[in-house]
Every structure is written in C-alpha cells, then in structure tokens.
C-alpha cells in the first residue's frame, strides 16, 4: 500500500508540529538565556553596526586629510580627533575595524573547514592517509607561524589580502583537526556509520553526511573562538608591519602608529585599542556561551 502524495505531506507536516523543539531552537534558547551569551551577541552586533554603518554617518572618508587639523583632540568636526597626518581617527578606525572583522571571520571559517576535513579524512581512512595528514599537522605545529607569516609579508602587499587570509587560516587549524580525528575514530565504529558503509555508501559521502554533522557543535564553537584568534594574529602582524599593508589600514597598523603619540595624544591609541578589545571580548563571550549551550550533557 502506498500513501498518496497529499497524505504523505500531511503526515510529515503533523510530525513536524508534534516533534520536540528542534536542536537548533533548544541551543538558541539556552544561548539567549545566559547573560554572557546575550551581552556578547549584543556587543558584537554593535561593533558590526559601527564598522559597516558608522562610516556613513561620519563626514570624512578614511583617505581624507584635514590640513587644518593635525593631531587635534576629539571635537564636533572630528569625533575621535585627528592623527599627525590630519586623517580623521573616526574614519580610519572604522575602516581598520572593517578590515580586521572581515579578515578574522574569513580566516576562522576557512581554518575550521580545513580542520574538519583533515581531521575527518585522517580519522575515517586511517592507515597511510592518517599518517601523512597527521605528519603535516605536526609539521605546521612545529613551524613558527608568526615568523613564516612575517617572512611572507612582501607577498601580501598591494591588495593581496585574500592571500593573507588564506595563510592566516593555514596556521590556525592544527589542534582542532587532532580533536576531530580522535572523535572520528570513535564515530566510525558506531552503528549508523557501519550501516551506511555496509549499504555501500561511498566513504566521502559518509564523512559529509554522517561524520561531520555529528561534530557540528565542536566545529561551531571552534569557528567562533578562531575568529578572535585570527583577529589577534592579524592585528599583531599588522602592528609590526607584516600584515595589512599601507595604504590599507587595520586596527594593528593604527595601534602601532598610535603608540608613538599615545602619551600626549591619547585618542590616537585608545579608540583603536578599545574597539579591538571590545571585539575580541564579544567573540570570546559568544564562543564560551555557545560551548555551554551546545553541551549535550547539560539539562534544559
């Protein structure tokens, strides 16, 4: 006996209505109920709003120089004051914030994808695949990331920042991929994976359909915490002149310039430094509450 299409649709719709709240909703509920998660999300939303909508409100662009105001304190004309070059601190800081946010987000997502793929393939196939992949992982762990990225910095000049993002991601994924590998090794012995294997599902499909979805909580948390790690690495590299290159600005280059004038012109340093700290703080708060919300052993 077969169900007609309409009946099938009705049954599945009914099942959806009766079902317990989905995992996504459960996690979102837990996340939003924690004060930490709420304040982190609100802070990050504010930072994003400031970075991408803020420049529209200001009257200067980040390339403008006001030759009538060098190193002036904050005023109605220049909300965050001006630099020694006459550039508007509000405009350049928001531009740097934009750059740091984009670089941080992209690098974090990229490195988590890399960690998931390498870890899952190593853990599922074992044997030579595992040995080779884990050896590469160890090698990258042993290479001093900051030094390698700094040496490569001449390649990032003149608008090559996507390459910078890729290189940043290349040095962020190793520890997570080791965790993913361990979890994959135990997952591949579970009944649902074995069932799929005996039904003849190809290994790559098993990895994408059964293994990785089961590791999604770990990967979500990892991606979030990688955002702050990527932003910190990017700003540190840029601080020493190895990251985002002029004429482009990042929070790191601004902080580096600001430290020279910080004692007598505090606005050149503290706005950029403060925004950087707030951004990283917000991302860390979100990551920490996500970890709690995704913990399957937690009741409610």
């Amino acid at each position: 006996m077969t169900l007609s299409r309409e009946e099938l649709a009705r049954v599945s719709a009914g099942a959806g209505r009766l079902a317990v709240p989905s995992r996504g909703r459960l996690v979102a509920g837990r996340f939003l109920r924690s004060g930490q998660g709420r304040s982190g999300a609100a802070l990050l939303a504010l930072v994003f709003l400031l970075a991408f909508a803020g420049p529209l409100a200001g009257r200067w662009s980040h390339t403008d120089k006001d030759f009538l105001a060098f190193l002036q304190p904050p005023s109605a004309l220049h909300w965050f004051g001006t630099l020694q070059t006459g550039a508007d601190v509000y405009a350049v800081t928001l531009r740097g914030l934009q750059r740091s946010l984009v670089v941080g987000l992209l690098a974090a997502v990229l490195s988590t994808v890399l960690a998931a793929l390498v870890g899952a393939f190593a853990g599922y196939f074992l044997g030579w695949t595992e040995r080779t992949l884990m050896w590469v992982t160890d090698l990258l762990l042993v290479l001093p990331a900051f030094l390698i990225l700094a040496v490569m910095s001449p390649l990032f000049s003149s608008g090559q920042w996507p390459l910078f993002v890729a290189m940043l991601a290349l040095f962020l994924w190793m520890v997570t991929s080791k965790i993913v590998r361990g979890m994959t090794i135990s997952l591949r012995e579970r009944e649902f994976v074995q069932a799929a294997r005996f039904m003849g599902v190809p290994p790559v499909t098993i990895i994408f359909r059964h293994i990785l979805p089961n590791l999604s909580s770990l990967l979500v948390v990892d991606a979030t915490l990688n955002v702050s790690a990527a932003i910190l690495t990017e700003t540190s590299l840029s601080y020493f002149g190895f990251g985002i290159q002029p004429p482009d600005v990042s929070l790191g280059t601004l902080i580096a310039d600001g430290t020279r004038t910080a004692t007598y012109a505090p606005w050149t340093f503290w706005f950029a430094a403060g925004l950087l700290i707030v951004t990283v703080l917000a991302v860390n708060l979100i990551g920490d509450s996500l970890r709690d919300a995704l913990d399957p052993e937690r009741p409610g």
Binding site: S236, Y239, G252, I255, A256, T259, L281, N284
Partner: peptide
C-alpha cells in the same frame, strides 16, 4: 580573565 584574554599582547605591553 575574560577581560585579559581580550587584550592582545601588543596592546597590553603598550598599555
């Protein structure tokens, strides 16, 4: 500890 972990070393040293 949340506050400290949000401050990059380059900023902390300069502070």
């Amino acid at each position: 500890s949340f506050a400290v972990l949000a401050i990059p070393t380059v900023v902390l040293a300069n502070m």
